[in-house]
Structure formats: structure tokens, C-alpha cells
Amino acid sequence: MPAPAGVPRQHNADSSQGNRSAMSVKARASELEILETAEISAGEARAVPSAPFEAGGPRRSLPSLATHALGLLQSHGPSFTVSLGALLAGLVLWHLATLYKFNFYIDFENTPSPVQVGKSFLGHLSTQDFYIHIGVSMQRIVTGYLLAAGLGITVGVAMARSRIARAAIYPYIEVLRPIPAVAWIPLAILMWPTEESSIIYITFLGALFPVVLNTLHGVEQTPEVLVRAARSLGATRLQILWHVILPAALPSIAAGLAIGMGVSWFSLLAGEIISGQYGIGYFTWNAYSLINYPDIVVGMLIIGGLGTLSTYAVRLFMRPFLGWQRRAR
């Protein structure tokens, strides 16, 4: 595997946020593949280095240990080293650009340097407000996301299994899906009783569509022969749903949940920037208003980190349910 596992995942999450509206079924399917390949490459990367240790036994001379360490680097290291090097190079470039106040079309004159950002970040670690911002954002994500996951899977299954449900719901999905989270903000504020509920609503909406569409797609992909087999084995409609259709759709649902988590953050930030008094999005925007430039970047990086972590958490959560898929390869 040439690329580290993180790279295709990142790309995947970004593209789903970027042009959500243009996502066709095909695009989602290919995204699913990317997700899967990412998972495999991660699995392989882990599997390779562990092998030499198991083979050798516990006692080992120093030179042989060094050889094994080298072997480890060779099998697993290059891609990791390259990633680390690329990150460092980016930091250095950023630093140089701010140091020499690079200004050619893009202006680095007022851009904070990595050192300033680092200092600011360390400073925040000891303030309580910083954790409140993060905690409030996480709470909104969890609430909105769980609601979206529950309703999304239910609606997706209903649409795939009932022609009437599909005909009734599909127009809503098609019309509402391309509307970006930011465009919802004014109406959400008017509609919902509290600011908090309107932000959660926007978060919920962001995660909802990827989950619905991926569930729908997954259920439709259920091989008909498996449903037929279950019927001839005596399964009722409900048993078929539970034992056949949901498991068959699960890989696609898992992909939808992971994509939904990314979009959910994307939407939350939009909501927090415009309204609210806490949250990491508010923190970022507030830093701009207060001309506290390093904090803008601190906020951005926190958002990126939390988004990645929570998407990873979703994958980790889904992993035990998809064990059969990895066994199959």
C-alpha cells in the first residue's frame, strides 16, 4: 500500500463536505470504495510490522533488534516518514511566509505564525473557557448527530422498502439536500424556540442526508437471492429486515454515518459562527472580531482535529459489525 491510511479518508470527508449537492449515487458508491480501501490499507499496515516479532521469539540480540527496527521502517516507515516530513515542511513554509511577510496576491502580513499559534494554544489549555467551548460543540454534535443517525436510517430503510414512502419523501430530500447549512441559519433561528435548538437542528440536518441516502442505497443493493432464501427458510418480513436487509446494507450505512459526521461538523460550525455564545465555531469567529489572529488558527485546528477524531470514532464503533467483510477478503 503506497499511501497511508489517513490520506484517502481525509480526502473522502472533504469531498463530501465540499460538493454535497453534486453527489450522485455513483459518487457515493465510489466514496464507499475509498472508505473500504482506506480500511484495508490500515489493516495491512498494522499486520505487516507485527509479523517479524512473532516469528522471532522473545530473546533477541541487539544487532538483530536493530535489523528488525530497520525492517519495520522499511515496511511501514516510508509512508509515515513522508507524511511527517510533508507536515514539517508545511510548517516551515508557513513560518517563513509569516517571517518575511510574504505578500503576493495571498497576504501573510497579518497571518499569525506557527509559533504564535502554538503559544496561544498552550495558553488556552489552562483556561476553563476553552474547554467549555469544546464541550458545548461536542454536545451539539452528539445530540444532532445521534438524532440524524436514528431518523436517517429509519427513513432510508422506509424509502427503500416502501414505494409510497419513497415517492412521498424523495422530493423533500432532493429539494432540501442542496441547501447549505449557512442558508438555513435565518430560518432556523425563526423556527426554533432557543438558539441552542436551532444550532442542533442545523447540525442534525447536515448529517441527515448522507445517512438517508447511503441507507437507501445500501438497502437497495441487498441481493434479491438472499431475501428469497430467507423467505424459503421461513423468515417473516420483520425477520428478513433484521437478519438480511440491515446487515446487507450495513457497509453502506457505515459509510453514510462516517460522511454524515464530517458534514455534521461542517454544519455545526456554520451555525456557531452566526449565532451562539459558546462553541468552537463561535470561538474562532470571535477571535476574528477581537483581532486575536492566532486564536483563529487555534480554533480551525481544533475543529479539524475534533472532526477527524469523531469520524474515526464512528468508524471504530462500526468496525465490530463489519468484521465479516474483512474476513471475506
Binding site: P223, L226, R228, S232, L233, H243, P247, L250, W324, Q325
Partner: peptide, 12 residues
Amino acid sequence: GMVFQQYSLFPW
């Protein structure tokens, strides 16, 4: 009981 041509086992 029905036995199909292929791929009819539940893969999960």
C-alpha cells in the same frame, strides 16, 4: 427447502 445456483448464503 430451496437451494439456489450460487451466492445465496448470508455472508455476514
